[in-house]
Structures are given as C-alpha cells and as structure tokens.
Amino acid sequence: MRRFALIAVPYLWLLALFLVPFVIVLKISLSDSALAIPPYLPTLDLKAGWSGITEFFSQLDFENFVWLTEDDLYWKAYLSSLKIALVSTVLTLAVGFPIAYGMARAPQHWRATLLLLVILPFWTSFLIRVYSWMGILSQEGYLNQFLMGIGLINEPLIILNTNVAVYIGIVYTYLPFMILPIYSALEKLDESLLEAAEDLGCSRMSAFWLVTVPLSKQGIIAGSFLVFIPTLGEFVIPSLLGGSKTLMIGKILWEEFFSNRDWPVASAVAVILLLILVIPIILFQRNEQKQREAEG
C-alpha cells in the first residue's frame, strides 16, 4: 500500500501535467483555427455520447501540417534553427575545449576554484546574461566605443540584431554546458599515455590529436548535445539579440501563439519541433549509456 502511494503520487502528477498536456497539443495541432473561445474547432462534446466522439474524430485532420509545408516561412525557420544550432555548437566547442583543457592542466589546488567559476554563471539569471550583451553589441555600445577609441574602426559595427549577435549569445550562455563534460573527461586522462606517445616518436601536436582528443570524445559528444538540443528550441536569445531576419522556430511558435493567436498552427509547429528533437535526444542518451558502461 505504501509502495503504491509512493509510486502513484509522482506518477499521476506527471501524467496529468506532462503527458496529458502533450496529448492536448497533439489534438489541437489536428484541429482547425476558429474565431471562438477557445480559438479552435472541434471541441469534444461528451454529452452527445458515442456519436459526439466519432463526430469529433472525423473533424480532425492534418491540414495544419500541410499548411506548414506550403508556407516556406516554416521550412526556412526549421532549417535556419538547425543551422544556427549546428554552427553555435561548433563555435562553443572551439571556445570551450581550450578552457576545459587549461582547467584540466591547471595545478590541482586551483581546480576547485576554476570549476566554481565555470558553474557560477549557470546559477545567475539566463535572461540577464543575454541582456548584458545588448549594451556591449549595440551601435553605440561598449565594443564599438572601444574599437573606435583605439582607432581600429571608423564606423560602428552593426552586430546587435544580426545572427552574429545570436551566435555570441548562444556561445556565451551555453559555454558551461560544453566545458563541464569535456573537463571531466580530460581530468580522468592518464598522462602516462601522452608520455608514451611522445616516447614512441609522436610530436606534441600529433599526440594531442591521436591520444587526447579520442580519449575525451565522450565528453565532447555530451557537451555538443547539451548545447545543440536546447539551442534548437531557443526563444530568448534570438528575440533579444537577433534581428527581424533571424528565423528560429522557438520565436515563430511564440509569435504564432501570442501575436497571431493561431493555436492549431502553434501546436503543429511544436509537434514538428519535437519530432526533429527526437533524433539528437536518442543519440545523446546512447552516448550517456556508453559512458556509464565504460565506467562500469
């Protein structure tokens, strides 16, 4: 009985507030938009009994999904989200790896402090971290003031409200997610392997590529997914730092819902976003599984 209650309480909670809402999204994505409250049709009429239920199902269709393929705004938004997520994952890796490498090489007594310094931004507000770049990147912002002050440029650079600003924002906010798994892989690396490689005639550079990188592969993969997956549905960064030309699917969904009030289309956008996310999520899980097995 007690065991039953222990299982039932969190189970029912998640069923009611995670699974059921998702089924509702699925259902509304198959409904039609309407000028009503709620703004979609059909609504399930249970009082009509069985005929009400069959009537309800017969009115569901894939019209919204067809609409998504016809209007090229959505295609472009999905593709551009994928591109932005991919490019920023590579950039974050390029910035994060040297930092993780430096941390793993740092003297033992520094490491706890360095680790704390990487985690600290994670606890501060995401919104504020994104916002802090608005003052830096704007036309009369600190970066342009600095560059013009030292005479490197004469005209202010236009960075804010472009995709460049979005990339900077993503790299900045997701950097800890990249650094931490790579650091934990590099920290476990047995240094005698590198010495052995060098004794056997490897240069330092080739020892790095042949030993260090393959042995930290799992950390690199984990970090990349931890950046790629949330970036794909990102809303705050493209809205604050991006411009009107920055197409990202999280932003489209938000606008479809709040500005156009087209709930069925917003739901269809959400369903497709989830379908796209399933692949990287499964790959990520598999990588984690492998790592756990390797550690025994």
């Binding site: 997956i229 739901s267 990520f284």
Partner: peptide, 23 residues
Amino acid sequence: FSGMIYAPLVMPEVITGLSLLLL
C-alpha cells in the same frame, strides 16, 4: 515513468509552456 522524468529535461521551454497553458 522514467521517460516522463527525463523528457522534461530536454523539452524546449516553448513546448512545455504551450502544452501546460492548453491544459
């Protein structure tokens, strides 16, 4: 059950928000 525990961790916030609002 374990799926429902892990899924929200990777679910985009816009989808979580939308689905709960519709509920």
